[in-house]
């Protein structure tokens, strides 16, 4: 059977000594999609990514990449993957060109150097400046190029635009979209909500070593709390609205205007509202940033 998932994890559990970092991470990334991986610091993003590449090994659970187990077939898996680590380190006594040639040799010299030059040009990377003299952003560009240069089937990038200026960030977004258009799957972690909104087809949110949400950005907005402001033609008894499951009356004004907070679907509320003389309805959806901050806040509250 054709494998539909580029990445599939089941019940990943990872301890660092006595500290548990992952509590059973289940994740599915379909082939050809761009998935954003959001989470606060220490949530388990990097640990999950490093388990995928067999850099660290989970104590429990399974990882499958295009149907292969990275523990049993690490070389076959890595042939298909382009990886950009969150903390990129390079050999400082080399030039970018020599560094990339070394990486190309590790891939069996199957790299198209015209494509490498093209990538370098797009993100303004000088291949002949010694790495030790490069800024963090320029080093990050080397990381981006090495991840993309063999046109991988799967790109795994841990905060890909870290240290890059906004113009180059846009170029990287373009490159990732181009890769997807050419059939690649992209799995990237980020703190930048705008980046996830701009790029991702789907988002997974990890908190405290658990995936707490997995949806596309618009679904995610729907699934969370939103506010509704209703105006009525005449004064009505608003208590009836407050009794609906998932609905909370936040504010009312003379029985002619109400602000509600809603969680879940709107079906019962709409049916109830049909009994009232409604003149206007306004739904306020939270931004992805607000959703993410809400999860952050819950995380911090749990920590306290």
């Amino acid at each position: 059977m054709e494998e539909t998932f580029a990445i599939k994890t089941e019940g990943l559990v990872k301890f660092y000594g006595k500290t548990q970092a992952l509590f059973g991470v289940d994740l599915e990334v379909e082939q050809g999609e761009i998935m954003g991986f959001l989470g606060p610091n220490g949530a388990g993003k990097t640990t999950t990514i490093r388990c995928l590449l067999d850099l660290i090994r989970p104590q429990e659970g399974n990882v499958s990449m295009f149907g292969l187990d990275p523990f049993k077939d690490p070389v076959d898996v890595r042939k298909m993957v382009g990886y950009l680590p969150g903390e990129l380190s390079l050999e400082t006594n080399m030039k970018p060109k020599a560094q990339l040639k070394y990486y190309a040799e590790l891939r069996g010299n199957s790299i198209d150097w015209n494509y490498v030059r093209e990538l370098a040009k797009k993100i303004h990377l000088d291949l002949n400046t010694p790495i030790k003299t490069l800024s963090k952003g320029n080093k990050q560009k080397i990381g981006v190029v090495q991840a993309l240069m063999h046109k991988p089937k799967l790109l795994i990038m841990d905060e890909p635009t870290s240290g890059l200026d906004p113009l180059i960030q846009q170029e990287v977004y373009k490159l990732l979209k181009e890769a997807r258009e050419n059939g690649a799957t992209v799995f990237f972690s980020s703190h930048i909500i705008g980046e996830v909104e701009a790029l991702a087809d789907r988002v997974a949110i990890i908190r405290g070593g658990r995936i707490i949400e997995e949806a596309n950005p618009s679904q995610l907005k729907l699934m969370t709390m939103r506010q509704m402001r209703i105006r009525f033609k005449e004064s009505v008894d608003l208590q009836a609205l407050d009794n609906i499951e998932g609905v909370e009356l936040l504010h009312k004004m003379n029985g002619v205007e109400a602000t509600l907070q809603i969680k879940g679907d709107l079906d019962k509320l709409i049916k109830k509202l049909a009994e009232f003389p409604v003149s206007d309805i306004e739904i306020m959806r939270p931004s992805l940033e607000e959703i993410f901050l809400k999860y952050y806040k819950e995380d911090q509250e749990e920590a306290i």
Partner: peptide
């Protein structure tokens, strides 16, 4: 130095 992390993502076995 943090270099091994990236190198081991390449198709070379340990």
């Amino acid at each position: 130095a943090g270099i091994l992390d990236l190198l081991l993502s390449y198709p070379v076995s340990r």
